[in-house]
Design a protein around this nucleic acid. Sequence first.
DNA 1: AGTATATTTGCACACGTGTGCATGATTTTC
DNA 2: GAAAATCATGCACACGTGTGCAAATATACT
Lengths: 333, 333
Amino acid sequence: MRKKITIKDIANDLGIHHATVSRALRDDPRISQVTKDKIVTYAKSNGYKLNQSAVNLRNTQSNEIAVIVPNISHYTFANFVSVITDLAAKNNFIVSMFQTRENYEYEIDAVKTIMQNRVAGVIASLSLTTMDTDHFKDLLEFGIPVVFFDRVPTEINAPKVTADNHNAAYECVSILLNKGYKKIAHLTGPLHISVFNDRNNGYQKALLDNNIDFISNIVIPKEFEIQDGFEAIQKLWNVKDRPDAVLCDSFTLSAGVNKYCRNQNIKVPEDLGIIAIANDPFSALLEPPQTIMSQPIDEIANETFKMLLDNVNGKNINDIKTIKTELVLRESI
Amino acid sequence: MRKKITIKDIANDLGIHHATVSRALRDDPRISQVTKDKIVTYAKSNGYKLNQSAVNLRNTQSNEIAVIVPNISHYTFANFVSVITDLAAKNNFIVSMFQTRENYEYEIDAVKTIMQNRVAGVIASLSLTTMDTDHFKDLLEFGIPVVFFDRVPTEINAPKVTADNHNAAYECVSILLNKGYKKIAHLTGPLHISVFNDRNNGYQKALLDNNIDFISNIVIPKEFEIQDGFEAIQKLWNVKDRPDAVLCDSFTLSAGVNKYCRNQNIKVPEDLGIIAIANDPFSALLEPPQTIMSQPIDEIANETFKMLLDNVNGKNINDIKTIKTELVLRESI
DNA sequence: AGTATATTTGCACACGTGTGCATGATTTTC
DNA sequence: GAAAATCATGCACACGTGTGCAAATATACT
């Protein structure tokens, strides 16, 4: 391992001042072309690598964008992070990953670490167990811009990007009713989180508008895994007034419902209709291929990043963007 | 936004030296308990946050671990990153994400950025288009430890963690032959990458050991998406000597095969047997539920992280770990 | 030629923290 | 009660880069 050379080393070797080297390497117009060429050539042939930590200290800000998600291994978040990572790289930022595992304490730890790292900006989706959001308020007060997506807090004045959740659920229920389903259950999440609250409101509104009084809210307590969907429909199925259709708030939940139906020989869509607000390419591969209300993750990620970048660059934008969803009709309803 | 206070501010306010503050906050035994209490209390009530950039500069090393993967949105990598992120947080490291999109140029850019950031360590899986690995050699020579996983380079002397790929493929083919299949195709990746080469060798060895001379290697050119699997089997199916079974090197490829079979009413497992070396929970949800040779991602991630941590901590460990795979028998063969 | 202007480079300090060494304060020991 | 040992704190410098301002040099203009 050879010694790491610095701009001061280059300056000494070339008999000039390190400020000149710094300016030359950043292509400052004040440095003459001959000097630049000399410096750049020397730097390259001697393996000079900029020390980003020093730059970050000098700038009182790091070159990172922190992303806080509940669970990276879930397709929606994985896909989101994937898009964000590309955008960040294109804009000379690094993405730092934080995963809450739906755990409030982890979320607080993440925010603390993020502040210590003087990150340029934060993109976040709340954990299911997050009841108060003071830690995010601290973050904003500390001067770090935050953009929320998907699971956004209602009580914080910050930019937010979500799907058009109310309408998405409303549409799903309307379609189910049109197809003749009468007893529609809703597999959702904790209602203190706006995305689930909005959807549940859309669900209830659609029932109300159609004079249906069967309402069944299932709030999944911990995570959004396949097993949770399996257990939720199992409970629903074994009561007297079982549903004939179910609206699921994630692909994993609906996959769990699908699994239960196959286990129990429940015919889909005859005995039970399944529709999900999701965006998983594998929904097409289930048996039967699953009807979904698709949220365009790419668009959500793009809008989120754009707003964050604006705020990182000093513009004080506080928009709330709502992205249209799109029905993908398959064979599960 | 209030001013960010530093240890010097605390020192001034309390009439002591900033070195004492630094030591107190790091719980240095040389500082008396009374002084510590006074400092910690003051720091907390005045919202002091450590500046990690300064620490990183001082330590000539950042608190980040960089992870380079081809595509975060693929389940295998998403799951891997998810485990690594948890482990990193537990050990006070941050995970920085880099995504090559199977692109050699992006991989080089990532390595450059990583060196600039004086990252503590790197975890990497090669892109499909990576033919030479000089950039990783630079990284090692620069003093940054690297652990490779899954798609590992043969020509670099560094710690590596992979599944037992040769045996996994050998076992898959043996099982297919036992079940009576005669013409087994292999949907793999570029053979200059050891994981695919190893599997293809296992595949060929099993055929050889059973005196079968039907060999069909399909090398997918660009990515490992569902569509690529679809097109691969489409080609294979429309030649005179079509296979009666197929071994797929990823879940996405096998999902593409599954999709084609359903499109074309090819009966699985009667007309075509499908087995995949994969680890996707959704493989159980396909129709028919898919037989896989499962790679334990958690174990691979754990081993990878452990080896990296050892190397970050100065131990010079260069082991090559091979993780056993496990057959999950379902209905696609 | 002398002054005004433009171009190029240097100086000095700042960003915030950590640590080896020295110094000062307190307690122990004989 | 003085020397030794222990404990607590301070001093000064280092980590590598960027930038406002000053200074030096080169060019243009009358």
